[in-house]
Design a binder for these strands. Sequence first.
DNA 1: CCTTTACCTCAAGTTTACTTGAGGTTTTAC
DNA 2: GTAAAACCTCAAGTAAACTTGAGGTAAAGG
Lengths: 144, 144
Amino acid sequence: MNKRELKVGVVAERSGIAISAVHFYEAEGLISSSRNQSNHRVYRADVLRRIAVIKAAQNMGIGLGEIKQQLATLPDNRTPTQSDWAKLAQQWRVLLDQRIQRIERLRDSLEGCIGCGCLSMDNCPIYNQDDQLASKGTGAVLLK
Amino acid sequence: MNKRELKVGVVAERSGIAISAVHFYEAEGLISSSRNQSNHRVYRADVLRRIAVIKAAQNMGIGLGEIKQQLATLPDNRTPTQSDWAKLAQQWRVLLDQRIQRIERLRDSLEGCIGCGCLSMDNCPIYNQDDQLASKGTGAVLLK
DNA sequence: CCTTTACCTCAAGTTTACTTGAGGTTTTAC
DNA sequence: GTAAAACCTCAAGTAAACTTGAGGTAAAGG
């Protein structure tokens, strides 16, 4: 049973974020701590993993509000078990695969028609004659 | 030769963004227009494609500053040719593949050790005994 | 013991990416 | 011709994600 206790300075340094950001994430409810006699925050070591996952998701363009929502399935009051993480992994797998597909679509379409309405690429008349796709949605319809 | 000219309201609507955002992107140098006799902005149709690519990149968590930099290889004063887009596509392919790999790594590691220093997963002693990876960088070293 | 380092809270400030509001001109439609 | 819609600029406001600064206590080290 992992009982490692970390102070805020250590958490910040190992995570590569500022102490103020650790404070901020806790204020926002993304992470939590207990307090010692001197009112110093005391974190379980799994907070490092939690912050790492937060930063990875953020780096994908996901906002903190949504990240918080999605991490809510993890227990707050104890170190999450393998099975807790497996449950989260299952949910995220769907989301992450969708993101991968979206990037793949962009990567593979950058030289052709994306259904944006410009009609300036050679294959736009094939995929979007007269911008018929405008009736299907805004922006690059073929990338969604 | 595509000579379609669009007013700002049409651009905003087809792109699915606000007129104020069109103004903002132009102010930031991400898109450009000419002016007619009434000082109204006049856009070439390829601006739709440009905005679509901007939104796609943004949605991946890339900031406007970086997007601007990367779109700088496209000509501003005329509709980009197939070959202009091919050049950009080549550069972006590398970046996009890197992003895909990063997401795949996260997807495939959510149930195991990511090198974050928590040492709370079953396979952490295998991949990160005593958090030796701390010397290799901050955060989730194995996800980078 | 004293100095330095590490921690606390609170609130204002900064950056990014827009949006809104105010006050005006031009174009479109009836 | 008139009213409504579409356009303009400028500047302040909003939201999100932090950072900085001010003023204080506690812990660590010599």
